[in-house]
């Protein structure tokens, strides 16, 4: 079995994202829109902003990952490419993982890259910055996995987008809790290891089970 086609799928997804240009920059714009609106909304006091900074960055990351979910599988579903996934010789879970990886590269990675800037804008204490980046690095893939699952489940419905966010919300609550818990602990000078460990455990759990659930859901939807 040749797996050479997997990088090709990744390259195609990324090329499509780049050629859509503005659309793939939306998560970043969104991140900064949230980060600019928050100080204007709650007032620019450094203490208040510092204490809500981890939550704000994380909520922005979550919303950014929600943005691109609607079209994660839908175009392929509508033009029939998705059915080819089952006809080809490649393992479907592998294809699913590749698709999720490209989603993460488009929505998760830009957020991580610009997180230091966001942290500065919200006066996050310097000792918490490393933990924030680490928590984003571990946590945003979970967001992509869970979001991908919701996208796959709602594929056969015609009013997916509202349902999509309702499905994603309860499943990402633990991620949000542990990630912001880690950053807050670090900001207060405690060890963030327990939170980060739990977050990593969630990632492992999601990485093992979610691709299977996604391929089962896609399978049901193309039947």
């Amino acid at each position: 079995m040749s797996l050479a086609a997997l990088p090709a799928l990744l390259a195609r997804d990324l090329r499509l994202a780049v050629r859509h240009g503005g659309e793939s920059l939306m998560p970043l714009f969104f991140l900064f829109a949230v980060l600019i609106l928050v100080p204007l909304g709650v007032g620019p006091g450094p203490n208040l902003l510092a204490s809500i900074a981890p939550g704000m960055v994380w909520v922005a990351a979550l919303l950014a990952s929600l943005l691109a979910l609607e079209n994660l599988f839908r175009p392929d579903f509508e033009d029939g490419t998705l059915e080819q996934w089952w006809l080809g010789h490649l393992p479907v879970t592998g294809l699913v993982l590749i698709r999720l990886l490209s989603h993460w590269l488009i929505t998760g990675l830009p957020v991580i890259i610009f997180a230091p800037l966001a942290a500065q804008m919200l006066y996050l204490p310097d000792q918490a910055l490393g933990v924030l980046l680490l928590s984003l690095l571990i946590g945003t893939p979970i967001l992509s996995l869970v979001g991908g699952l919701a996208a796959a489940l709602t594929l056969g419905t015609n009013r997916g987008s509202v349902l999509l966010s309702i499905l994603v919300f309860p499943l990402v609550v633990p991620v949000l809790i542990f990630a912001t818990g880690a950053v807050s602990a670090a900001a207060d000078g405690f060890s963030p290891r327990a939170h980060l460990g739990l977050l990593a455990a969630l990632l492992v759990l999601a990485l093992t089970l979610v691709p299977l659930a996604i391929s089962a859901a896609l399978r049901l939807n193309i039947e």
Binding site: L153, T154, G156, T157, N158, R159, G160, L163, L167, A213, A216, A217, L220, N221, E223
Partner: peptide, 17 residues
């Protein structure tokens, strides 16, 4: 999720996942 599908059986199976 179940209510969003026109095909009840498909909706049920997807919701089961």
């Amino acid at each position: 999720l179940y209510a969003a599908f026109d095909d009840r059986r498909k909706g049920a199976r997807v919701a089961c996942i």
